[in-house]
Design a binder for these strands. Sequence first.
DNA 1: CTTTGTCATAAAAACGTTTTACGAAAAAGG
DNA 2: CCTTTTTCGTAAAACGTTTTTATGACAAAG
Lengths: 335, 335
Amino acid sequence: MSSVSIKEVAARAGVSPGTVSNVLNRPEKVAASTRSRVETAIRELGFVRHGSASSLRAGHSRTVGLSVIDIGNPFFTDVAAGVEEVASERGYAVILGNSSGDRLKEERNLLVFAEQRVRGVLITPSGPDLTGLGQLKQRGINVVLVDHPAERADQCSVAVNDVVGGSMAVAHLLEAGPARIAYVTGPLAVRQCADRLIGAEQALAAAGRDPAEALEEIEMSAMNARSGQQAAEKLIAEGRLPDAVFCANDLMALGMLRGLLQAGVRVPGDVRLIGYDDIDFASASAVSLSSIRQPTHRLGRVATDLLLDECDNPDSHAHQQVTFQPELIVRESTR
Amino acid sequence: MSSVSIKEVAARAGVSPGTVSNVLNRPEKVAASTRSRVETAIRELGFVRHGSASSLRAGHSRTVGLSVIDIGNPFFTDVAAGVEEVASERGYAVILGNSSGDRLKEERNLLVFAEQRVRGVLITPSGPDLTGLGQLKQRGINVVLVDHPAERADQCSVAVNDVVGGSMAVAHLLEAGPARIAYVTGPLAVRQCADRLIGAEQALAAAGRDPAEALEEIEMSAMNARSGQQAAEKLIAEGRLPDAVFCANDLMALGMLRGLLQAGVRVPGDVRLIGYDDIDFASASAVSLSSIRQPTHRLGRVATDLLLDECDNPDSHAHQQVTFQPELIVRESTR
DNA sequence: CTTTGTCATAAAAACGTTTTACGAAAAAGG
DNA sequence: CCTTTTTCGTAAAACGTTTTTATGACAAAG
């Protein structure tokens, strides 16, 4: 109720409102004695700056929007944690939006962000169509793509090379000798899934094998543990187990692991298994899971650094498309 | 850049700015013909309401703050997903803060919320000291406690009965006959951990056993898979394995499971194991984990419903302290 | 002792909405 | 046909900041 304004602070400190604003925003512009007088007044009155008034007048807020595909996936959770860290350090608030892979929901999120006049948006697009983002940029809202390389040089992006990751995974599976491999994936319309497949095929080709023959694709609609287990049941029902399985993410790999073990298939004895993302639970499962590690937390941090740099230094800012390299983590499931 | 204001919409529709505002906020107050004229003008110009200006004048924003203890824990992730769903449905934006169990960080979050003049705050307090929340309420910001029962009747809260949950877990472990049980927990200063211990002791007492003798407490500083595995190593090093282990959350239980299996201890053969939270990964692990399920998603949804009801109907709103009951989920690890 | 320049502060005008008080026109009532 | 009520719109005043321009004091320069 009792909202104390800059005016009351000014009155108590015996200065004008403008001076209080200067203390808040350009402390160096005001004499040390007045400054400390104002500061104690602020403390005594428990004044908190009114963000809306501030951003209305200043023309920009101290918030960023974060739109992710699935907040339930540890991958995105780690990214979000990194984003929150940096934003918080630099005095920005994070507005969270969960698109659930739904284009409509994603657009609703962007509308909310626009209404809040966020300073910038961090987004993992749910699909290949980025028109909505162009509109944001027209409105002066900066955009950084997360886990999605920018096609054009006029914007920042952070991503991890999924082709390389897919290649690493399959090359590792082939180390044990020629093998028939199943690639269990989410929708191939999802860029990450498609890129990992390309990498897998490259690795097979490099080993002198024909992908069409040595690689079986199993495309599921969801990318969670349940769908991984369903894929396992399908493989078992068909009766011809592959020598190795590469899952497009760890959630699916964990489901696959469970399905295989339940059916009495030994991992890695009968089937070698590798996942993707290296989520915490990958190492905690009973047969610890080999995986492709992505620098998730760092992804979030760097994306936010880029975004806030763009916001705070619009002139000197140079757009960057950062690509990280994934890392192979070998554990029991492929030993 | 091109920020179109309500004025330009008004000009194009041939009405006054006030009328546009009415179309936006009280559509029933304006004649159908003018309304549609205004609406097409809005569409044609791509007008988006300026949230800051709106909340400055109206005195309240359409945002809520969410402060959680660990966004990396699937428990909180599920809660957050529920919160985001409801908020989004009702046109509110969610500002996310991660306290990491750090009191200072939590206060910084609350300050940010206050600056943004959020309509309300959803918070899982990181400790027993709730003074910071009192200040918020003085400022007219509604507060709903999440996973923490309110002590006083003047505010809303949603929680799950942790005493009952702890009791359920241990009673279930005792079904197989008298057993020596280890309770592997996070800091007992955390209410949830302490309550689950109380429940555990009650269950033992009800079975006619002396808790001091039949229950060993192992208190770890963190509540993740790593600390669970450390606890397992400690138990094994000491050489006297309990008959059953109750872990204060599933992350610790998964670590415990891994530690035990690696040492050749059979689960549930040698040691029966139960966790808490029933996170997705509990059922996906190779020896699927018995657990105490909490309605996490629902917790988030109900909390947000209560908060927004309090915001939108301050007069008719009746404070509620909702307590859910947990549910025992039996899987392989205790069969 | 004047003039010039510097600097801290004051005063006032924005920012884009919502809201209040009020008028005009239309509908209802006699 | 004249009142009374109702409906629909307008104009203008907020909301709490930031920012620009103006002002006055005081020091340095002449």
